[in-house]
Design a protein around this nucleic acid. Structure first.
Length: 658
RNA sequence: GCUUCCAUAGCUCAAUGGAUAGAGCAACGCCCUUCUAAGGCGAAGAUGAAGGUUCGAUUCCUUCUGGGAGCACCA
């Protein structure tokens, strides 16, 4: 029985392997005259001349190629052309069964993402996290994993007590219901108010501290340095800009001593730059508000009924707010962890490690892991696992959760979707687990992603420069409605507008490699034209519309086999090649776990389709004969299926009308 | 100071060690009597610097320059 073919590159690689004994890496051709190719250097043995390698290989390969494929060569490449017949057949197989060319994993895999704090609403960083986590989960499921989506809510600690304290003082019994404010925003407002009150309280203390001779001296020196360096830095910047424009590098003519001096001054300024923060931190020690927060945290830990009741009430509000946002993003977790329930766990793991001599006890009584000794990092570094008062820290809990996850759910893989700020934390966590001898540690993976930055720089909740997820989604939804109305569509539902707006945001966030940071300009970043979510949805709507009309027209389904040789337009060939690329892309995703590959692919597919759409009428009887119409209709059908499939993997919802 | 990530077109981003480094936005010029112009077509525009490995480097290695993030009793 012949095996169903899902991959042209498989066919090609196998043919070459049979012919030459070597399996080359087949790429899509970069030139117009060929479809696929590989560099013949891959076949070379020793110092054989490349031309004879090519001639020899071609002569052999031509005998092993399946029907519908021809071979040629150009430069150091051996190239192939594939018939539309064979491409269509493969495309049909993929559309029928998109994961057919993938070896399924049969793994049980957990994806932990979101991980919010219950003191403020979700912001843009969380949206990148949600988008990546949700998409990773969908992709893993497609690859055959049995996926458990998990969330760890950080619902206790000093930061939670801050909003509690402020509410206790000024809340006056108001609630999200009584004020009409969404729960997470309601609580977040108290968190912000607390921070403001704190700044106000410490202002006089800060003023006093600034007068202390040592601080005053530092501050004066800082001002002096700033004044001195400002013109120099401005000149350097201007020079760099000018060089960039002129595409050259101007030689730095300053004397070496001068350069050294400037460098040292810059370093000194950088150190002094922290003086303001240091003074504030010192002032906070005097703050009655911060003392009250600490007292409240102690009461919480002692399970004081009044504090616990307030905590439960406020957390309930926040979680209710999160639930709304998550529902809107279609995120549903299978497993929910709460820090309040696990923050005390992990002590036994640490004590066990201490007994075995893996950890050490600090003179102060704290238990620490020496990261250098454990071979986790080259340079000096220590991590506290139990505080000197015996209480646990973040790392302690994470040791416990990792173990709990692996053992309770018998996982084959455990992904943590967490921002790159915590790269060191995960390196240490995994290293410590390895030192403790847990053999499953290799199954833990940190999917790290970069910060989302605004044009003004990093988002800071205290400075009110955060982009709130709910606000952003609302703005996008409204913008979509305005655009739709401008195009004559006055009746678009809120639901569709919301889907299109979300697609814009999600696609933008998924179009950048996770590890790199990204800039987000609220005014410009989320467009609706060009390489965007709405563009892809628009092409999807077009495919759907054609298929719908075809259904209406062809009341009697033609049973004659479709003749794909009727497809003579270059763009039809290109579209087939793009459709068939789906399997290769998914194999790459399987290897790299990088969903942005899918984002790129689905855009290219949509773009190729759009080109096809403008050049090749499908259902215009006067221009397109029925047989050709039928063949083109198949291309539309395959495209429709694979855009939908790809968007599913990105966790982007589709609409039927735009 | 140490660790780590990054540097590609005016801007935002692509490119498993392979062919002429791709897109989108912005700016310029065309195309709606044609399945929805949130569209299509055209022209213009780039690998931070210097070395090294290789038949071949945006990709790997070293140094430099510039940016982000992190550096034990927060999470």
């Amino acid at each position: 029985m012949e095996q169903t073919n899902y991959s042209i590159t498989d066919l090609l690689a196998s043919a070459v392997e049979t012919a030459t004994g070597k399996r080359p890496n087949i790429l899509r051709a970069n030139i117009a005259t060929a479809d696929y190719g590989f560099n013949a250097f891959q076949l070379r043995e020793g110092n054989q001349h490349i031309d004879s390698v090519i001639a020899d290989a071609r002569a052999r390969i031509v005998k092993t190629l399946p029907q519908g494929i021809t071979v040629s060569s150009a430069g150091t490449f051996i190239n192939f052309n594939v018939s539309n017949e064979l491409l269509s057949q493969t495309a049909g197989n993929i559309a029928e069964n998109p994961s057919g060319g993938i070896t399924p994993a049969h793994d049980k895999t957990m994806v932990e993402y979101f991980s919010p704090n219950t003191n403020k609403p979700a912001h843009l960083g969380h949206l990148r996290n949600l988008t990546l986590g949700k998409s990773l989960s969908a992709t893993l499921a497609f690859l055959g994993h049995d996926v458990l989506q998990a969330n760890l809510t950080n619902d206790r600690g000093a930061h939670i007590c801050k909003s509690m304290l402020d509410y206790q003082m000024f809340g006056e019994g108001s609630t999200p219901e009584s004020t009409g404010i969404k729960g997470d925003h309601f609580v977040g407002d108290y968190y912000v108010k607390y921070e403001k009150a704190l700044q106000k309280e410490i202002a006089p203390i800060v003023a006093e501290l600034r007068k202390k001779p040592e601080n005053a001296a530092k501050l004066a020196r800082k001002a002096e340095l700033e004044k001195e360096l400002k013109p120099i830095i401005e000149r350097e910047k201007a020079q760099q800009e000018a060089d960039k424009l002129a595409k050259k590098t101007t030689k730095d003519t300053r004397a070496p001593e001068e350069k050294m001096k400037i460098k040292e001054l810059k370093k000194e300024l950088e150190k002094l730059g922290k003086i303001d923060e240091e003074i504030k931190d010192e002032a906070k020690k005097e703050s009655s508000l911060d003392k009250q927060v600490s007292a409240m945290l102690l009461k919480w830990e002692a399970e004081d009924p009044e504090i616990r009741a307030l905590w439960e009430q406020m957390n309930g509000w926040v979680l209710g707010g999160f639930r709304e946002t998550l529902d809107r993003m279609n995120v549903h977790f299978d497993v929910e962890y709460f820090e309040s329930q696990i923050y005390n766990m992990g002590r036994d793991i640490v004590m066990d490690g201490l007994e075995k001599g893996i950890f050490e006890r600090d003179p102060s009584g704290a238990v620490i892991a020496d990261l250098q000794k454990l071979g986790i990092q080259k340079n000096e570094g220590k991590k506290v696992l139990l505080r000197s008062d015996g209480t646990t820290v973040y790392t302690t809990q994470d040791l416990a959760i990792a173990k709990m996850k692996m053992e309770d759910h018998k996982l084959n893989n455990s992904f943590y979707v967490v921002a790159g700020e915590q790269d060191d934390h995960f390196r240490a966590l995994f290293g410590i687990l390895k030192a403790l001898g847990y053999e499953w540690v290799d199954k833990l993976k940190h999917l790290s992603y970069g910060m989302v930055e605004l044009p003004e720089g990093q988002m800071k909740s205290r400075e009110g420069t955060v982009v709130d997820v709910d606000d952003l989604l609302n703005e996008l939804r409204d913008k979509v409605k305005v655009i739709a109305a401008g195009k004559g569509n006055e009746t678009m539902s809120d639901e569709d507008a919301d889907k299109i707006g979300k697609a814009a945001a999600q696609y933008y966030l998924l179009s950048v490699r996770p590890e790199s940071g990204m800039k987000f300009d609220p005014k410009e970043s989320v467009n609706f034209e060009g390489k965007t979510g709405p563009y892809i949805l628009y092409q999807y709507v077009r495919t759907g519309k054609i298929l719908e009309q075809a259904d209406l027209l062809e009341t009697a389904q033609t049973k004659t086999p479709v003749d794909f040789n009727l497809l003579q337009e270059p763009i039809e060939h290109e579209l087939l090649l793009k459709i068939v690329e789906f399997t290769e892309k998914m194999r790459a995703v399987q290897k790299t776990m990088d969903q942005t590959l899918i984002a790129t692919y689905v855009y290219e597919l949509a773009q190729t389709f759009s080109n096809f759409y403008s050049k090749c009428p499908v259902l215009k009887g006067d221009k397109t004969p029925p047989e050709l119409s039928q063949a083109r209709l198949k291309l539309v059908e395959y495209t429709h299926t694979l855009i939908k499939q790809s968007l599913d993997l990105l966790a982007i919802e589709t609409v039927d009308k735009m």
